[in-house]
Each structure stands twice: as C-alpha cells, then as structure tokens.
Design a binder for these strands. Structure first.
Lengths: 201, 201
DNA sequence: ATATTTTTTGAACGATGTTCAAAAAAGGAG
DNA sequence: CTCCTTTTTTGAACATCGTTCAAAAAATAT
C-alpha cells in the first residue's frame, strides 16, 4: 500500500513546513537554522531533505503559504469595503497584514535565491493576484489604457505603497515612526489616486 | 615612530575596503566571502579582523562609501537642474544611480545586522541627506507644515520611489520591465507632486 | 647586535547546510 | 510467526563559512 507511505510523507512535510513557518515568525528569516527546524518538526536533520530539496525550497513554500494568507486577507478587504476609496482600502489592508505577520511578510522580500538560481515559475505565478486586485479599481479610472499598461501601472502603485511600508517596518534608515505610518499610507494612496485621475482627466 | 605604522594600517584598511567593494559590485552582497576579500586585498585571512571588527562592520563601511557616492550624484543632479520639476529630477537621478551601481546600491538595503544588533549611529546619520534633498522642494509646496511633518512626508516620498525602483531592479515578483521603469518613475514623481499640491491647495 | 614590541599570519575552532551509508521500520511471502 | 526485500529514517561525516589567537615575522628601540 502506498497510501500510508504518502500520507506519512505528507505528514512530515507539513510538520517541517509548520516548524519553519513558526521559526521564521518567531525569529525572522535570518535566524532560521536547519537543526532547529528538524528539532521542532520532530525528525532527524536529514529528514528535511527527504521532503524539501534544500532550505531555499522550504522557504519558498513558507512564502507560498504566507502569500496565500495575504491573498485571502486582501481579497476579503476589497470585497467588504462599502463606498470607501479602493486604493486606500487595499493599501491599509496591506499595511495591516504586514504589521500582523511582520516577520513572515518580511521573509517574502528578504529571501534571495543563490546567485544564478531563478525563482521557480510556480512561485512567481502566485504573485499575480496582487496586480489583479489593483487593476480592478485602476481600470475604472483609466478605461482607455491597454491591459499591458494597466499591469505596469498597477505594479507601480503596489511598489510605491510597499516601499513606504517596507522601509518603515524594517525601521532602518529612512523609516517612518510607527504612529505616522498609517496616516502616510492613506495619504499616499490618496495622492496616487488623485494623480492618476488628473492624468486621465 | 607611529606614523609609518598607522599609515600601513590605513593602507591595509583601504585595500580591504576596496576589495570588498569590488567583490560586492561584481558578485553581489550574497556572494561576499572573507577569504576572497583577503586574497584580493593581498593579506592573510586574519588581516581583515585587524582593521574591521567583522564582516558586518566592513559591509557597513562599504555602504558608507556607496552612500557618499550617492549623495554626490544626487546633490549634483539637484544643483544642475534648470526649471525641471524637482521631484522628477531627484527620482530619475536616483534611478540612474541605482542602475549604474546596481549591486552596491542593492547592498545598502539587503544588508541586515545580526538579530538584536543595532546599526551604529554614525551610519544612520549618513542617511539624513536623502531626506534633506527632498525637504527643500517639498517645503516650497507645503510651507505651512511643521519641520517634523516635512520630514515624515519627505521620507514617504523617498520610500515610494525607492519601492518602485527596488522591486523592479531586483526583477522578481512585482517588478516592472526595464523599458517601462523610467517612464513609471517619472509618472510617479509627477503624480506625487500633483497629489501634494492638491492636498496643499 | 640584541632585545622588545608590534604586526601579520594561517592553522584551528565552532557553526552551518547538505549528503549518504547504515540502521530501523514496514511490507510481503511462505 | 519467520525470513527476506524494500522503504524510510537516522545522525555521523563532510565541505564551507566567519572568526580567533598562538606563534612567526617584521619593525623598533637599546
């Protein structure tokens, strides 16, 4: 019977994934060590490499789960909003997620593949929903733009808001004080929307 | 005589700094290895630790030099502009620098201190010029804002532009195609300026 | 010249990710 | 239940890091 085998395998895989996710949430991506993961997952060190190719592969799957979580959060926020301005709702929901899952969210952008190794396609695909969420309200303002240009503009909007949040939550160099962040994100979303409207009008 | 001694020390320190800077520029921060630095600097492995506390300290000093380089570039760009819109000039100069010194520029934001260790103050101070460059044109548009609020808003503007450039040059996930980047940065700077003016008006 | 101090060296150490031969467990046949 | 085969799990061993430090080399002083 291969059923029990695969189910045990899946069980180990999930335990390892959980352990890695917890450890990142607790200590950040930097402090992640293979031996800690194995210990928390309740398996030997080598066990990790029977269910994931290496630590990068494992981190990719942690990030995949975080992205799924984020997709759910943002999609719900976009659905719930009444007549609130869509860019502000999305930006503030993004800020909320980043704050609540700070270290897991940071790991999404801190992690790098080794030199010369590309991020696998299945994981790149998981990011498209972000652009999709923004394109929807954007195309209402800029109905004449081609789909290609809409994608470009949506990515710009996301990256601008992301930049403010990322630099602030890292609170290094050019970060904002935590109290000002929410106001600034709202103001930025508003300014961007106004700027786009002016351009379109 | 302690003069010759300190001069030899300074010479080694500079050779190590140059070697590290070159290696980061060639292979990125991730591929930086102490043994490679020592080899290129022409000293033994332990030599590094006689002129820098550890690799983090060395990287901090490489970043310090990169920041100085950036300050010079941006300050000149701001001085040269005729009647061109100031935010666009600064944003495009920042993009130009990021593109020309891609890996050194990336290292500024990729590098993290070990868990629990703060970035030293002398290095934090080196970033204030960035805010200063933006505050100048910003205060012309928003003359009623307090200095504190001006700083906050300037940081937001910087972070927004930085976000677009950083995500694109990393060209992962949500990055823009290289051809669109310049147009988008310009459009973003324009939209932000317009948004601020609308808010002030 | 010789002694003392300073500088430079690179072998050694501890920590890390990864591998793989061997042990343990599971499954199948008689 | 016992023996054999296959699969799974293990953790010691390995390669590669950053870092240290006793000893060698060089510089300086006497």
């Amino acid at each position: 019977m291969s059923e029990k085998r695969t189910s045990k395998r899946e069980d180990l895989r999930l335990r390892v994934l959980d352990a890695a996710s917890q450890l990142i949430a607790e200590q950040g991506l930097q402090g992640l060590r293979a031996r800690d993961i194995a210990e928390r997952a309740g398996c030997a060190l080598g066990g990790l490499y029977t269910v994931f190719a290496d630590l990068d592969d494992l981190i990719l799957h942690v990030n995949s789960r975080t992205l799924g979580d984020m997709e759910k959060t943002l999609t719900e926020a976009a659905a719930v909003r009444g007549d609130a301005p869509p860019f502000e709702v999305l930006a503030l929901a993004y800020l909320g997620f980043a704050r609540q899952k700070a270290r897991l969210w940071s790991a999404l952008f801190e992690h790098r593949m080794p030199e010369g190794v590309a991020v696998p396609d299945w994981h790149l695909q998981e990011h498209v929903f972000l652009v999709g969420l923004i394109i929807q309200p954007l195309s209402a303002i800029l109905p004449d733009l081609s789909q290609e240009d809409l994608v470009i503009r949506a990515k710009t909007l996301f990256a601008a808001v992301h930049g403010v949040i990322a630099l602030s939550l890292d609170n290094r160099y050019v970060g904002l004080p935590s109290t000002a962040l929410e106001d600034e994100v709202r103001a930025l979303a508003r300014a961007l929307a106004a700027g786009i409207r002016a351009e379109a009008g």
